[in-house]
Amino acid sequence: MGLAVSGARILADALRAPETALRLDAAGWTALIAMARAEQLAGTLAHRLEGLAVPGAAACILADARASAAQGQTAALWEAEMARRALAPLEMPVVLLKGTAFAAAGLSAGMGRSIGDLDILVPRGRIGEAEAALIAAGWEWVKPDPYDDLYYRRWMHELPPLIHRERDRMIDVHHTILPLTARITPDAEALIADSVVLADGLRVLSPPDMICHAAAHLFADGDLAGGLRNLWDIHCLIGESGTQGLEARAAHHGLSAAVARAGRLSHALFGSAVPQAWRRTAGADALYLRRMLARDGWGRATRRLTRMGFYIRSHAIRMPPAMLARHLWTKWRKGHVPG
């Protein structure tokens, strides 16, 4: 834990225990707001601090952030409705994922959360039908590059991203929750089979699967960019649905390590109510915390080496070495620069 002091700690503290923010001076508030914006957590922070006697200028900024998040959620839910209408004739289960799912299901993880693209999960065998229906309804390809397109279709857990030509919003259509090249292969059929249907016919993952997905997304995919927000999602999900049956479900998906780490870090930063075994950090947890809090009072990314390490790791866990070398070589020839 010694490694993880300072950085965005004041942000994590303010989310965990909002009254800690009341001790901040003007410079502290300025840093807190800059960090929250940089971590896409401004709306979440604003909801946590609602009703507290914060300084007037901060109150205005936080009220703006709440209004902005509310509008973002309205737009995100409308986008989900557009996808629902486009896919309804196919009569296939359509599972909302991540931010849109939290908002649609009215979960605390959705409170003030910024929502980017629309992420949905459909049965793998029917993804071609879903793609055709979306294209017929006005979505178009984003990536014109044939290598990228082929790469997505052969190796990824989702279609190449589509963007709607009129609303300018992206949709990611998943058939599972981790790339096919990763060593871990979650049970996508079980994710869909156990999903929960909402009033409008759209679905969300079952509570334990939501946590498994969030943990997979955080630790078994990506380079931890946006990690603090994802960990806050996990904290909220645990707080609302508990951890009953979570370990067994994680084991079923091959995600035991990721879910345990999520539980430990969520407890360490936010004090989540997790099983006893997860109440102490272990292994490389300190390094993960160091990466998650790598943000200074100007909202700048800090700890360059740690970030680079996680960037390299994100590729190493995504595909086998020879394939990675081939992929990076192709991307480099096309002029892609990492970082």
């Binding site: 001076d25 508030w29 300025t30 707001i33 300084p55 007037g56 200028a57 900024i61 100007w298």
Partner: peptide, 9 residues
């Protein structure tokens, strides 16, 4: 800035 807390950085 009001209260010493700027709106934007």
């Amino acid at each position: 800035p009001l209260d010493g807390i700027p709106d934007f950085t």
